[in-house]
Computed example of a mutant assay.
Amino acid sequence: MKILVLNSGSSSLKYKVIDIISEYVLAEGLCERIGLDGRIIYKVESKNIKENIEVELPTHKEAIELVLEKIQNIDNGVIKSIEEINAIGHRVAHGGEYFDDSVVVNDDVLQKIRELSELAPLHNPANVLGIEICKELMPDKTNVAVFDTAFHQSMPDYSYMYALPIEDYEELKVRKYGFHGTSHKYVSNIANEYLNKENSKIIVCHLGNGSSITSVKNGQSIDTSMGFTPLQGLMMGTRCGDIDPASVLYIMDKRNLTSNEMNTRMNKESGILGVFGDSSDCRDLQEEMNKGNKRARLAFDMLIFKIKKYIGAYAASLGGVDAICFTGGIGENSSVVRERVCKDLEFMGVKLNIQKNSERQDGIVELSSEESKVKVFKIPTNEELVIARDTYRLV
């Protein structure tokens, strides 16, 4: 059984074709700069093929048509016809309070995703577009929506509520929703398998250009750092994370900024980029820090401090912790970040194997020493596999 997984962004389209029985990725790639000059990357590892094609992609429809054409190509395709695709799994950013699990898409589901575009204006409209195009091009195929927010719907009310007037929640649905749920679900499930415990307390650190931390108790999300939007929580590549809301009003007043301009400032001009100034990439940050760049050192120290603060808070609210997991581009690849985060956490039972942490190893790696009371794991995330598994489960 073959599942097509799509992640439709405002000007991009990520895709994978997965044989769900073997869970093997048959083909994958990215269509980018849709609506601009267009480019598609197509990879088939089993055939050692990687193509970079410059082509006009005026809309998402042309992008999806090209993906379908490439995967059926007589020379380097992975299926003989589209009939081999059994279903399509779509990543959807926001499911609000409607969805606590993945669902088969029908008219009602599609309408609810449209309604939630108010909460995710950059993502949900593109997600809807991807679904609608697939329904047009492949009308006999089942579409499944997998929501970034669904895993966090298990959070208790005292965790997701903000201390605003209650009518802001009842009438406007202003609350913590959390994101990266598909990644947190996958990584915490893997950690649970390794722990082999009936009751587990796990902290997952998804660290990348966008970062979030989630506390998971017995397989359920209890709290997560991202909130009403992905802006809350950790300092990220270009997002500011937690700040005093009054500082936003102060900056807007002093700099005469509109709400849209302030939104851009917090989401695209802050975080590592805002403090460091040269780049939002953690690799560039570490390189400059090692050269003695003071702003790079400040940004790095801020990043580590905020990650550790969340880990400590979640360990307290969970009443202990069995495992800390690192995933995402930074979490999986930066041994320096992992080492600095775990430093001084011995008081809560964390002891990192420094040698093992510094070694470059693929796959799932236990990084804690034998005497560590808390397991530390590096677990590569696989959101597309979760989407494919949920699609298979539902169809």
Rank of each mutant, 00 (worst) to 15 (best):
D322K: 03
S215N: 04
L30A: 05
V204A: 12
V337M: 03
G292R: 04
Y160M: 06
G38K: 01
G329P: 04
M302I: 14
C31E: 00
N196D: 15
H94A: 06
D140Y: 11
G328Y: 07
V78C: 05
A27T: 03
L6H: 02
R360I: 13
N7P: 04
Y160V: 05
A315G: 00
D244T: 11
E51H: 11
F305M: 06
S81M: 00
I304V: 15
E371A: 14
D281A: 06
Q111N: 15
F276I: 09
M161S: 14
L116F: 06
Y15V: 04
L303G: 02
R175K: 15
D37W: 00
N263L: 15
G331S: 05
N124C: 09
V78D: 07
I74H: 11
T327Y: 03
V336Q: 05
H206L: 01
D301P: 01
G363V: 07
F151W: 05
I272P: 00
P165G: 13
Y160C: 03
D100E: 10
N73I: 02
R239D: 10
I364R: 02
R297C: 14
I88D: 03
P380H: 02
N263E: 12
H94T: 03
H206Y: 05
V350P: 06
V78M: 07
Y169V: 02
R265D: 13
I222P: 00
G241Y: 08
Q361R: 15
L13M: 15
V25Q: 01
D37L: 06
L13H: 04
N209M: 09
K80F: 10
V55H: 02
E136K: 10
S117Y: 14
T214D: 10
G312S: 03
K309F: 04
I379M: 05
N256V: 10
P245V: 12
H90F: 12
T229R: 08
S102R: 01
C342F: 04
F347V: 14
K80M: 08
G320H: 03
N333V: 00
V144S: 10
I272F: 04
L4P: 01
H184G: 12
S225Y: 05
P230L: 13
C240T: 14
L303R: 03
T149W: 01
F300N: 06
V5G: 12
I113L: 07
T264M: 09
R175Q: 12
G29V: 07
I82V: 15
E269Q: 12
H184T: 10
L6I: 15
E167W: 09
I364D: 05
V109G: 06
G77V: 12
M226F: 12
Q72L: 07
K351G: 01
S8G: 13
V374F: 08
L164F: 11
R265M: 15
A323Q: 05
Q111T: 13
G89C: 07
Q111I: 11
P245W: 08
Y162N: 07
L164N: 01
T224C: 09
N260F: 10
N127E: 04
P156S: 13
N143H: 04
N106Q: 08
A63E: 05
L137P: 00
D168G: 05
F276P: 03
L30R: 06
R39L: 09
H90Y: 12
M226N: 09
K43D: 02
T142S: 15
N218M: 10
K375L: 08
R389I: 01
S117G: 15
I34V: 08
V55R: 08
S369I: 06
P139D: 12
P245M: 14
